[in-house]
């Protein structure tokens, strides 16, 4: 356990995810900007050009893109906290109050991501018609909510573990 390769790998993986997250954000931002620059091309690409609800679909897609951009800082906050947690494990001191707070914050950030995902799915359902069906990879996810519950429970475990360690440190 002490010489586990999982930690350095997790650290590198998280660093890559931080980078990919910013790239993803930049791409979505560029895409959103492009919908204003060349609206007719975007409508064609979406396959709604000339349809009666084309403008509505366009704005819905812009809304979805804006929500996608909103997830970037949320993801960054999660990765930042995870990196700090990995650092504490590497330093051999993970049972600290800060990690309990970090996990608690991560749980709430995951809730925000799930709510955004459900909102995106809702928008997709509203604009999807038989003429132009939209299949968005978003919406309620039982696994995500399970992960959220797990984070809240783990945050509590860390908090209790920290208190127990403090007690143990004062025991002679």
């Amino acid at each position: 356990m002490r010489h586990s390769t999982a930690l350095p790998l997790a650290y590198v993986f998280l660093r890559i995810l931080v980078l990919l997250n910013w790239i993803f954000g930049a791409c979505i931002l560029a895409l959103l900007a492009f919908t204003f620059i060349n609206e007719s091309w975007t409508m064609k690409a979406l396959g709604v050009s000339g349809m009666s609800d084309a403008v509505q679909v366009m704005w819905a897609m812009r809304g979805i893109a804006a929500l996608g951009i909103a997830t970037v800082p949320i993801n960054y906050q999660i990765f930042k906290r995870l990196l700090k947690m990995v650092d504490t494990v590497r330093a051999g001191d993970p049972f600290v109050a800060d990690n309990a707070y970090r996990l608690h914050a991560i749980a709430w950030l995951l809730v925000a991501l799930q709510l955004i995902s459900m909102t995106i799915a809702g928008i997709g359902r509203i604009i999807s018609t038989e003429e132009h069906p939209f299949h968005l990879d978003a919406g309620f996810s039982a696994n995500s909510w399970l992960a959220i519950i797990l984070c809240f429970v783990l945050a509590r475990v860390f908090a209790e573990g920290t208190l127990m360690r403090e007690d143990l440190e004062g025991t002679v």
């Binding site: 403090e166 004062g170 025991t171 002679v172």
Partner: peptide
Amino acid sequence: DITLANLSILKTGKARAIR
């Protein structure tokens, strides 16, 4: 067989518990 540091903690009343 207890470290002097721990015994000092006990002596000065800074210990939170005693085994």
